[in-house]
Amino acid sequence: MSDDRFFARARRNGGFVLGAILVAALIAAAALSLVWTPYPPAAIDVPHKLLEPSFAHWLGTDSLGHDVVSQLLAGARISILVGIIAVGIGLVFGVALGLVAASVGGVVEDVIMNLCDFTFAFPALLLAIMLTAVLGAGVVNAILAIGVANVPIFAKVTRALGNGVLARDYAMAARAAGKGPVAIALEHVLPNVAPALIVQATIQFAIAILAEAALSYLGLGAQPPQASWGRMLSDAQQFMFLAPRLAVFPGVAIAMAVLGLNLLGDGLRDLLDPRLRARR
C-alpha cells in the first residue's frame, strides 16, 4: 500500500485520528515537562496547599502545595518511561521466544507455549508484589514486573502469526533453497508479523500505563518526590472531602492516555490489516 493511500484512509478513520491526537498530547506533555513546567513539579509549598484553581495555579495545588499542572505534566514522563521500557522488555524477549517456538516447533514450541499459558496466573500486580516484598518498592521493580508480564503476550502473537508465515509458499521456498531457520525467521517471519506486533505494542503500552498507575497508587511504583498520576491519586484520596477535584484530574489524564493508545491501536489494526476489521 502506498503511503498516500495509507494517510488518506487514516484520515477517514475517526478513532485513529482521535487516538493519534491524544497520544500526541501525551508525548507533548512529557516533552514539555522536560524543559518547562509552571512550577518545579516537586516543589513543596505548604503555605499554598489545597488552593483552588486560579490564574497562578491553573488546576490548583495539592496537600503539600505542589502545582497540579506541573505534576500532571511530569507524571506523563513516568507513564511514557514505564510504557516504553516495559513494552520493550516484552517485545525483545517475547518476540525472540515466539520466533524460536515457531521456527523450531516440536517439544521446544510446546514447552515455550505452556510456559506462556502458565504465566497468566501471575498478573503484573502479583509479580510486583512479590518483587517489592523482597527488593523493596520502586519504579524499577514496577517496570520489571510489567515487562515480564508482557513477554508471553508478545511470544504468543509472534508464534501464532509466525507459524502462518512459515506455512506460506515463499517461506517454504526459502527453506528449500537452503536458508537457515534464523535467516528465515529474521528475513521472512519478522517483517510479516511486525504490523501485528506494532498494534499489540500500542495496546500493551496502554495496559502498562494502567498498571504503573495502579502500582504507584498502591505505593509499589514511583516513590516521592517522583511525580506520578497514580501517586497523585493516592494523595488526593486522603483529602477527598476537602478537595475532591484533586482526585479527578490525574484520573482523567490516565484515562485519556489509555483511551488514546487503545484507539490508536485499534485504528492501526484496521489500517494495517483490513481483513480484521470485520471482526470487531
Binding site: 496502554a206 494502567l210 498507575a213 477527598m240 475532591p244 479527578v248 484520573g251 490516565i254 484515562a255 489509555v258
Partner: peptide, 14 residues
Amino acid sequence: LAVPNFWFAILLVL
C-alpha cells in the same frame, strides 16, 4: 477499558 479500576472506585466514593 481506559478507566483504571481504582480511579473508578475513587469516583464512586466521591
